[in-house]
Write a protein that binds this DNA or RNA. Structure first.
Lengths: 122, 122
DNA sequence: GACAAAAACAACCATTAGTTGTATTATGCG
DNA sequence: CGCATAATACAACTAATGGTTGTTTTTGTC
C-alpha cells in the first residue's frame, strides 16, 4: 500500500546512485543484497525498511534525509504547540484552570462523560 | 537484520504515542492496521517501512525526522509525556479527545467561557 | 556487428508483515 | 473490595513480499 510513495523513494535512490556513477551491482554489493533486489527497491516493487534505507544512505554517503526528500509532510506540527497540546486543548485547559470551584469542575467532567457516552452509542 | 535500529524506532514511536495520550488501538486505527501489528512495530519484532513510518508520523503529528533520530528525539518525547497535568486535568483532556465532533467541542469551549465569566463576577 | 556490462524480467523460496483469538494486566467505578 | 472494561501482551496462523538465482533484453564501445 501507499505505492506512489515507495516508488518515489526508489527513484530518488536511483538518482543518487547514478550521480555517484555506481552500478546497481556495486551499490547492492555494498549493502549486501543482490542487484536484482536493489532493482525492486528502485522500481518500487518492494518496500524499503528504515534499516535498509539507512544502509543505502551510508553506501551513497548521503544523509537519510536526502532520500526522504519530497516525502516530508509539509504542515506537520502546524497546530501543535508546546507540550503536545493542540490550541483547542490548551484553551480548554486554560479555561478549566480558571474554575476554582471544585464542584463545578466535577460537574463538567461528568458532563463530558455523558457526552462521550452518548457519542459512543451512535 | 539490524535489529537494534528497529527497536529504537519502535520505542520512539511508543513514547510519542503515549505523549499524545493515544492508545495502541487509536493509533493503529488511524493508520489502518491492527493494534497488535502496531505492538510489533513498537517492540521491534517487525520491520517498519518508510511509507508506514510516514503514516505514523502523520498520525502523531510529528515530522518523520523525529522518529528517525534516536537519542535526541527520545528526550523530547520524555519531556512531552511528563508535562505536569493533574489527574483531573488529564481526565478532562482524555474525555475531550474522545469527542470527534468539532461542533460539540466548540460548544464545550464556549460553555466553559461562559462559566468562567459568571464566576468572575461573583 | 560483436562482446561485455548493465539493467530488466521471471520464477521460485523463506521470511515476515499482518491478521484474529486469547490471556494478562491495569484502571476505573459502585 | 470486587467487578467490569479498557489497554497491552502473547500465540498461532496465513498471505504477502523480501530476497534469491536464472534468463532475457538493452546499452554502450571497439
Amino acid at each position: 500500500m501507499v505505492k506512489g510513495f515507495r516508488k518515489n523513494i526508489g527513484e530518488t535512490i536511483k538518482k543518487y546512485r547514478l550521480a555517484t556513477h555506481m552500478s546497481q551491482m556495486e551499490l547492492a554489493g555494498k549493502i549486501g543484497i543482490s542487484y536484482q533486489q536493489l532493482q525492486k527497491y528502485e522500481k518500487g516493487i518492494n518496500n524499503i525498511s528504515i534499516s535498509r534505507l539507512k544502509q543505502i544512505s551510508e553506501a551513497l554517503k548521503i544523509p537519510i534525509s536526502s532520500l526522504l526528500e519530497g516525502q516530508e509532510t509539509e504542515r506537520v506540527a502546524e497546530d501543535i504547540s508546546e507540550y503536545g497540546l493542540s490550541k483547542e486543548e490548551k484553551t480548554l485547559l486554560d479555561l478549566f484552570r480558571k474554575i476554582d470551584n471544585k464542584d463545578i469542575r466535577r460537574g463538567l467532567i461528568l458532563e463530558l462523560k455523558g457526552i462521550v457516552e452518548i457519542l459512543k452509542k451512535k
